[in-house]
Amino acid sequence: MLEVFVFSTLNGLVTGLLLFMLASGLTLIFSMMGVLNFAHASFYMLGAYFAYSVSLKLGFWAGLFFAPLLVGTLGALVERYALRRVHAYGHVAELVFTFGLAFLIEEAVQFFWGADTKNYRSPDLLDFPLFVLFGQEFSAYRGFMITISVGIFLVLFYVLTRSRIGIIIQAAITHPHTVANLGHNVPLIFMAVFGVGTALAGVAGVIAGPVLTTFPGMAVVLGSIVFVIVVIGGLGSLGGAFVASLMIGLLQSYAIASNLGMPDLLNLLGLDFSRDHPLNDLWTLTLPQIAPVLPFLLLVLVLIFRPTGLAGKREE
């Protein structure tokens, strides 16, 4: 029992930190532009695919370096030439645009790389068990994923709160006009933050690609979960996103590992239903079965009872 717990905690941590890499960029972009970027997970997918193509020629580490750069550049271009234009038409148009972009990127990925799963692999250098616990191996690559994610979190936190650039960004979020009057190029800041946010998603894609498989549906798999995190954490709150990422990661990991379900609950209550009861599916539900649904259940509950999320500010 303990080993299941320890390993689901570790796996949950890996997923949670990975999700945070996506969520941090998304929440930064949201606090700036006030629009949720539906295509964020698509940039994550592009990261994985770019890294795959680069790694074929130059190896994994070159991919880790170049792919986020490419993704970030692409993100900045999208902001400069498309989002800025759509911004004039209002929030709905922006949201719909990013939605269409996500659709387009998925089709484009299938056009350039094909619909099949790519054999994108973790580097041989990290192909050893980091430690063995209860007879189960924990791979070095997963340890690497944790290190990178924590590292990025620390750097991001430091840059945003302690550096001059971070202070300008924070000011541009709340008082864009004042910052512009002080002589800073606010549209350029917005473009840069969008680029960095998408580059972060790219990094997540590079390191997640080998573990979560690189295929055209990988954006859809993660996309809505990242949304859930950003909303649960409180729109625009980096700390909230961090807590929510870990929460969702652990929640899913525990739910998948546990073998509890409705039958156990019914036994506990001393109830019994016949097999041919019309609601039989309901009486035989198990936690692993509903694990994928849990984040969305949480989302709806949070939005109903605390629409600002865990750490969100009061809406005006």
């Binding site: 509903i290 649904v293 969305f296 259940l297 989302l299 709806v300 939005l303 629409p307």
Partner: peptide, 29 residues
């Protein structure tokens, strides 16, 4: 329907995913 905007959009997304996932769980219906 308390709010329009992002909150409404997110609830609709959540409900959509919930129902779609449930539809695969409740096989008899």
């Amino acid at each position: 329907t308390h709010k329009a905007g992002t909150v409404f959009a997110m609830i609709s997304l959540g409900i959509g995913e919930l129902v779609a996932a449930s539809s695969l769980i409740f096989v008899s219906f």
